Simulated assay, not measured.
Amino acid sequence: MAKLQVAIDLLSTEAALELAAKVAPYVDIIELGTPLIKQEGLKVVTAMKAAHPDKLVFADMKTADTGALEAEMAFNAGADLVTVMGTVDDATIKGAVAAANKLGKKVVVDTIGVKNRVQRAKEVSAMGVAFVELHAGLDEQALPGYSIQTLINEGIEAGVPFSIAGGVNANSIKDVLAAGAEVAVAGGAIYSAADPAKAAEALKAAFN
């Protein structure tokens, strides 16, 4: 069954834990954003896993080199999943996957900056990653004419396990799920809402 992932793009451990406590009943995966990890270090991963041991904790490392080392660091801190950039050398992805297999964890490839997301999704899936995150970053989403439908279409075309990140909200989530996404990643739709718990609950309702 598809999972709902909340992307926590806040900048303190305390704020991240506060938000997670509100939305945990409705999400399956708690993602700690790259700026949060850069600000707080891997201690935020450890704190989140301790607070929510029943949830998958996703460390958005966006690793670009030393795949095995950075993956192992995050896994040892409590992460269940880590990201490696799809633009990197295959050796970096394979190294992270090897570390994941050793520790019983999983690697996700992030496609920010990848020119041909469909082709790269097929390539990295063959390397043993859990799924490919078809991801339009905040900068890309701000460009004129951006549409999440592009990511949805790419997921269908790629035919590999994928998640969608880049504008998942109450209006788009049903299309994301209908396309066969393994994971729907919601960030601002939850953390920027007046009532994050209610927003997460509404998104989760789409899964039923």
Rank of each mutant, 00 (worst) to 15 (best):
V183G: 03
E133Y: 01
S163K: 03
A121Y: 03
E201F: 06
K43G: 13
K204T: 07
E140I: 14
V88H: 03
A197Q: 04
K174L: 02
M48K: 11
G128N: 07
A77R: 06
E182Y: 07
A100G: 15
V97K: 09
G187L: 01
D9G: 10
V118H: 01
P196W: 04
A202P: 06
V44I: 14
G113Y: 12
A178L: 08
L11E: 05
A179F: 02
M127V: 03
N208F: 00
G137P: 03
G137R: 05
I156W: 01
I190W: 02
Q141P: 05
K3I: 01
K38I: 10
L143E: 11
G137Y: 01
L69M: 14
E40H: 15
H135T: 05
S147Y: 05
E157Q: 15
L138T: 14
T150L: 13
L143A: 15
A199E: 01
V82S: 12
E201C: 11
F131H: 13
K22G: 02
L4G: 01
E18Q: 13
A197E: 02
I164C: 02
I148F: 02
A2L: 09
A77G: 04
K198H: 07
I152D: 02
D139H: 08
P161W: 01
V168N: 06
P144F: 11
S12D: 01
F207K: 08
S192T: 15
A99W: 04
F207Q: 04
L134R: 03
G166E: 02
I152W: 01
A186V: 07
N116T: 08
S125Q: 13
E140P: 11
V44S: 06
A91S: 14
T13A: 07
A79R: 05
E123M: 07
L177A: 05
N101T: 14
A197H: 08
P35S: 09
T92V: 13
T92S: 07
L203K: 04
A206I: 06
V45R: 07
H52E: 00
F207M: 03
L81P: 08
E18T: 13
D90V: 14
M85Q: 13
Q141K: 13
S172H: 09
G128E: 00
V82L: 11
E18C: 12
E201P: 09
D28L: 14
N153E: 12
A202Q: 14
D80I: 11
A197V: 06
V129A: 02
G180K: 12
M85N: 12
A2F: 04
A142H: 01
A100L: 14
L4T: 02
K115G: 01
Q5P: 00
A15T: 13
A199R: 04
T13N: 02
A197R: 10
V23L: 10
K55I: 08
A186N: 02
V129N: 04
I37G: 04
M73P: 09
A64K: 15
A68T: 12
R120H: 07
A47L: 09
E123N: 10
D90H: 12
V6K: 06
L103E: 03
V97Q: 04
T83K: 10
E18V: 10
T83V: 08
V185I: 14
